[in-house]
């Protein structure tokens, strides 16, 4: 017979024996990204595997900046992602609120359509969307086309709807009896209460925009509106791929997000749980 603490110890060891290799496999590409961002350009082709960082980061970054005007593209990405996140949170909240709290003709159909779009892969949508926006509306190379078409986010709508329907109805009844207007109930009662869900949604939406490559690549070819992922993509030329620049740019784009995620992780997980389980 094993004692209880021995059983616990065995289980812990077993668990770590599985989890640690998994974590390492996951970390390896990230580590290599950091390594190559600090190595000279040709290190990636050297015959012996390079596993440790060197001192070429500033050099690589200077080259990247010279090739693409990288800092400006990062600035554009930040602006686009921020505007996108703020507007999208507001729109999805309003849609979620309407779907959670009001009964209207065709509500079921609207919900079904929103749910249905979730099952469509992005790549099925993006080409028709491009043709419509760029050719039919003639809006290629505009800020509007860069930001607005991806705004509608069914996941966000469902997220917010779930969060609002979990709130006890008597709370809104109480406000109604007190003569609080519907829009005030939404802004002053419902939205503040949905804060954990909104925090999680903000992270999801910001990351989605930050990482979006295909849409900005398709809809825009003005250099002053280029976003950072597209700038990195442009380093893959026909004859030459600038790996040092790509890795350096990837580090600059990834690490702040990784850091923010670790810091906000508690809210993030709580918000998703609140939206999904309760």
């Amino acid at each position: 017979m094993r004692s209880k603490s021995q059983t616990t110890l065995l289980r812990t060891v077993g668990l770590h024996a599985v989890l640690v290799p998994l974590a390492l496999i996951w970390l390896f590409p990230i580590w290599m990204m950091i390594v190559f961002s600090t190595q000279p350009e040709n290190a990636i082709f050297s015959s012996n595997l390079v596993l440790l960082p060197s001192d070429q980061f500033a050099n690589n970054f200077a080259l990247l900046q010279a090739d693409t005007g990288f800092l400006r593209t990062v600035f554009v990405s930040i602006v686009v992602a921020t505007v996108y996140t703020v507007v999208s949170v507001f729109l999805t909240s309003m849609a979620g609120w309407a779907l959670a709290r009001y009964n209207f003709a065709g509500k079921g159909v609207v919900l079904a359509i929103i749910l249905g779009t979730l099952t469509l892969p992005y790549f099925v949508v993006v080409i028709p969307q491009f043709i419509m926006v760029a050719r039919d509306f003639g809006l290629g190379n505009t800020w509007f086309a860069l930001i607005v078409p991806p705004l509608f986010n069914s996941l966000g709508v469902l997220f917010m709807r779930q969060s609002f329907s979990m709130m006890p109805g008597e709370l809104f009844d109480a406000a109604r009896v007190e003569g609080v207007k519907e829009w005030q109930i939404f802004l002053r009662v419902a939205l503040p209460m949905a804060r954990p869900t909104i925090a999680a949604l903000c992270i999801i939406l910001f990351l989605a925009s930050w990482n979006n490559y295909l849409w900005p690549l398709l809809i825009n070819n003005r250099p002053d509106m280029m976003t950072a992922p597209v700038a990195l993509g442009s380093l893959i030329g026909l004859t030459r791929v600038s790996w040092g620049g790509i890795m350096t740019g990837a580090v600059v784009l990834t690490l702040p997000m990784l850091f923010a995620f670790v810091v906000l992780q508690r809210h993030f997980v709580a918000g998703i749980a609140a939206g999904a389980i309760k």
Binding site: A175, Q184, R188
Partner: peptide, 8 residues
């Protein structure tokens, strides 16, 4: 306590 009054 004051919410309804403030909103009005």
């Amino acid at each position: 306590l004051s919410f309804g009054l403030r909103m009005n």
